[in-house]
Design a protein around this nucleic acid. Structure first.
Lengths: 277, 277
DNA sequence: GCACGGAAAAAATCAGACAATTGAGCCGCA
DNA sequence: TGCGGCTCAATTGTCTGATTTTTTCCGTGC
C-alpha cells in the first residue's frame, strides 16, 4: 500500500488474501488471528490496521491515501471491503474522503480520541507517555467525580454489586483474568450508580484502554501492590454516602493505578505537570 | 422500511431515489437538503436517518432490522449504500450485525454516546430532559476541571485568544452567528490551554451538541441574560492563575447556561426497556 | 445426553460498470 | 489584468448481481 506524504511516497506491504487455486497460504499480517475473541471481518481488520497505522503516526495528518482501486488491489481485497473500512475510519473522524481529491488523514483535533476503538488503536503499538498521562488525568477528573455522585445516589443493590466485586477481586488476584474482570465490575457498578449514561459510556471505554495497557505490568513485575484496601476505602465512603471522601479516595486510587502502570519504553520529554486538586 | 420488534412489525416509509426517466421528483425525507453545509452522501444520510430513529427510541435495543436486500429495496437504494450506512452505525456501537442472524440494535450501554454524531442524532428530534441533565452534569465536571488546569498551564497566547473571543462575543451578541462562534472560540481556547487532547476532544463534541439545543432558546425568548460578565470572571481567574477560582467560576457558568436552556416540551415514551444483562 | 455433520439464512465479499462530485485549467469578456 | 463561467478528468460514490463465509438450527448416530 502506498501513501503519498508531503515528502514523497511511503510503502506498506499487506496482503489479506491469496488467489484461489494456488497453494499459497493466506497471509494475515496484523490481526485476524490475533483477535481470537471477536473474529473481525475483513473490513474490520483493514480498518483496524489502518487505524493503528494512523494513530501511530505512520500516516501523518494531511497525507493522502492511495486511491480505492489501487489500495484494494494492493491489499488483495475487493473495493467494497476497502471502502467499508474507510467508512469506519471516517465515522471515527480519522479520515475524510471527497471525490476528485481522495481520502486524506484529518488533523488530530478532529479524531474521536475517546472512541473505544480509536483508544485501543492508539495504545496498541507503543503508548505515548504524554497521551497516557492525559488519559489518566481525564480518568482522575471524571471517575472521582463519579464516585462523589455515586455516593449520593447509589442504591443498596448497586452497593451489593460493588461489594461482591471487591470480594471476587480479593479472592482471585489481579494476576488472573477473573480478578481483572472483578476489578472492571467494581468500576462498572460504581459508574452505574451515578445514573449518568454519559459518564458510564466515557469511563468504561477509557478504563478498557487503560487496562489493556496495564496487562503489561503483570508481566514485568509481580503484583506491585494489593489493590483491595484502596478499593475498600472507596467502597466504604460510597456506603457511608460521604461524597467528599468518596471523591478523594477514588482520586488516590486512580493515582496509585497510574503509578503501577509502567512507563512506556521510549519517552523523550518527561516534564512533570501540576495536577488538579 | 420494516423492522421487527418484539411485538410485531413497525413500518417506516422512506424513499431516497426515484427510478430514472420517470417524472418523479426525488423524495428527500429527512436530510440531504436540510444539511446544506456538509452535503452528506447517500450512505451518510441513511446512517443519519437510521441513527436518529434509533436514538429516538423508534427502534428498541434488541430489535432486528430487516435484511439488507429488503431494506435497500424499501429505501430504493443499492445494497452497497445501505451496507455502508450500517457500517457507520456499527462503528458507533449502535448496531451489530452477524451472518445468519441479521443486524440488531445493541443495548444502549454499548452505544458510543459521546460520539459527536450520536450526540447530534440524540438531540435532533426532541431532547430527553434526563439526557440533557446528564450531559450538563458531565459538562460541569469536565469543563470546570479543565478551567482549573487551564489556569495553571495557559500561555499568554492562549490568554490573548480567550480575551479576543470575549471581546467579539461582547460586540456581536449571542443572537448572531458571529457571537455564538466567539462563544465557541472562547471555550475552545480554554480547552486548548489544558494541553490535554482528550479533554479537548470530549468537550468540543459535548458543547457542540449543547449549543445546537441552545439555538432554540434564542428563538423563543430574547437574550435571557448577558453572558459576558460570567465569561469575564472565568477569564480573570485563568489570567490570575487561580485554579480554584477558575473552577468555581466555570461551574457557575455551566449552571447558568443550563438554566438558560429551555426544558424540552414533551418527553414522550422514549423510555428504554430494561433488558437482561 | 453429546459430538458430529448437513442445511439454510443472512451477512460478507467479490467483480465490473456507470454516475456524481469537484478541483484545475482553459477561454472569453469586460 | 482580472474575473466569471465552461469543460475536462480524476476520484469517490452508487449500482447490479453473483459467489463465498459465517453462523444457527436441526437431525443423526453413537
Amino acid at each position: 500500500m502506498l501513501i503519498r506524504t508531503a515528502a514523497g511516497w511511503k510503502s506498506r506491504a499487506l496482503v489479506y488474501n491469496a488467489p484461489k487455486g494456488t497453494g499459497m497460504k493466506k497471509l494475515v499480517p496484523f490481526g485476524r488471528t490475533r483477535t481470537v475473541s471477536k473474529a473481525l471481518r475483513l473490513h474490520g481488520t483493514i480498518a483496524r490496521d489502518l487505524g493503528v497505522a494512523i494513530t501511530a503516526g505512520e500516516y501523518q495528518p494531511g497525507d493522502l491515501l492511495t486511491g480505492e482501486i489501487a489500495s484494494s488491489e494492493e491489499l488483495a481485497v475487493s473495493r467494497t471491503a476497502y471502502r467499508e473500512a474507510v467508512r469506519i475510519l471516517a465515522a471515527k473522524g480519522l479520515v475524510e474522503s471527497k471525490p476528485k481529491v481522495g481520502t486524506k488523514v484529518t488533523s488530530r483535533d478532529r479524531w474521536h480520541l475517546l472512541d473505544p476503538d480509536v483508544l485501543a488503536w492508539a495504545f496498541e503499538s507503543d503508548p505515548d507517555l504524554e497521551l497516557l498521562e492525559s488519559l489518566f488525568e481525564l480518568r482522575d477528573i471524571v471517575e472521582s467525580a463519579a464516585a462523589a455522585l455515586a455516593a449520593t445516589r447509589r442504591t443498596t443493590e448497586q452497593l451489593d454489586a460493588m461489594r461482591d466485586a471487591i470480594e471476587r477481586m480479593a479472592h482471585h488476584t489481579l494476576a488472573t483474568p477473573e480478578g481483572r474482570q472483578a476489578d472492571q465490575d467494581f468500576h462498572a457498578a460504581l459508574l452505574a450508580a451515578t445514573g449518568n449514561p454519559y459518564i458510564v459510556s466515557l469511563t468504561t471505554g477509557v478504563n478498557a484502554a487503560v487496562n489493556t495497557t496495564t496487562v503489561f505490568k503483570q508481566r514485568e513485575r509481580p503484583l506491585p501492590r494489593d489493590p483491595v484496601p484502596d478499593h475498600l476505602r472507596v467502597f466504604q465512603a460510597v456506603a457511608d454516602r460521604d461524597a467528599v471522601r468518596a471523591q478523594q479516595e477514588m482520586s488516590t486510587l486512580v493515582h496509585l493505578a497510574r503509578q503501577d502502570t509502567p512507563v512506556p519504553p521510549r519517552s523523550k520529554d518527561r516534564r512533570t505537570r501540576i495536577r488538579p486538586v
